[in-house]
């Protein structure tokens, strides 16, 4: 076990249990309690998790950028905290990209039923696509630009640029896309049960994302710790 291994494992287990519970509750609410939407029928139920994934994707990338900010502010001053910030960066980016994939698969399914085409350049879907691509590039940087301190710094810089980029992309695609169908614009959340189901879904995906991020973070910290152990061996033997 690594640094604080048992504790972080216990936290991971606890998070997993809570996330599983919430997800089950959310699924139950969505499929058995919330009524069918009038025009879209069963396909409207995609909306609950589609939007939940989208919100949490942006949150993940927000944390990734924050970690990048911390990483670059610390610089070479505190290795431990730089390592933690870097690990948070990888974990949140990978979870964010996973959520992005969910958004971009469920989006077209929704669009097919709601608007009759697989893809629309609906501003928020377009924004999701662009941010997804940006963080795929982040992962590509991490994979190919070197995992040393330099590569980490470059990736951190990219994640930070993601913050103003999201703002500008949002503005641009919003104006660029022009008008989009207003029918079921708010996902057709007309009934109070629907809103409860929606809130529960967002919370469930949030906990799922938190759990996955935590587990990934733990793995990354273990890996870093292993590197340190190798170094310690080298230090004593060499």
């Amino acid at each position: 076990m690594g640094k604080g291994g048992p504790v972080s494992a216990r936290i991971g287990f606890g998070l997993t249990v809570v996330a599983a519970g919430l997800l089950t509750a959310a699924l139950y609410m969505v499929f058995f309690v919330a009524p069918l939407e009038a025009t879209l029928g069963i396909s409207q139920k995609i909306f609950y998790f589609h939007v939940g994934a989208a919100i949490n994707m942006l949150l993940s990338f927000g944390f990734c950028a924050l970690a990048g900010l911390v990483y670059l502010s610390i610089g070479g001053m505190n290795r431990r905290w730089a390592d933690i910030a870097d690990a948070v960066g990888v974990a949140t980016a990978e979870v964010g990209v996973t959520l992005g994939a969910i958004v971009l698969i469920t989006g077209p399914l929704w669009a097919r039923k709601a608007w009759g085409t697989w893809w629309t350049w609906e501003p928020r879907l377009t924004l999701s696509l662009m941010v997804f691509l940006l963080f795929l590039a982040y992962l590509a940087l991490r994979a190919f630009a070197g995992s040393d301190r330099f590569g980490r710094g470059v990736a951190a810089g990219l994640s930070i640029l993601g913050i103003p980029a999201v703002y500008f992309i949002h503005f641009a695609v919003d104006r660029w896309g022009g008008a989009h169908p207003q029918v079921v614009y708010k996902g057709g959340l007309t009934q109070p049960e629907m809103r409860i189901a929606f809130g529960l879904s967002v919370a469930a995906v949030f906990l799922l994302a938190t759990t996955l991020s935590w587990l990934r973070l733990t793995i990354e910290r273990e890996r870093q710790h292993l590197d340190e152990l190798y170094l310690e061996v080298d230090r004593r033997l060499g």
Partner: peptide
């Protein structure tokens, strides 16, 4: 500048910059 010494910088550069250039 950052990718100056990276392997595959020719592909990595547009990969990283194009999402930012979209707006």
């Amino acid at each position: 500048a950052m990718l100056m010494n990276a392997r595959m910088k020719e592909v990595l550069l547009p990969l990283v910059t194009y999402p930012l250039f979209v707006p």
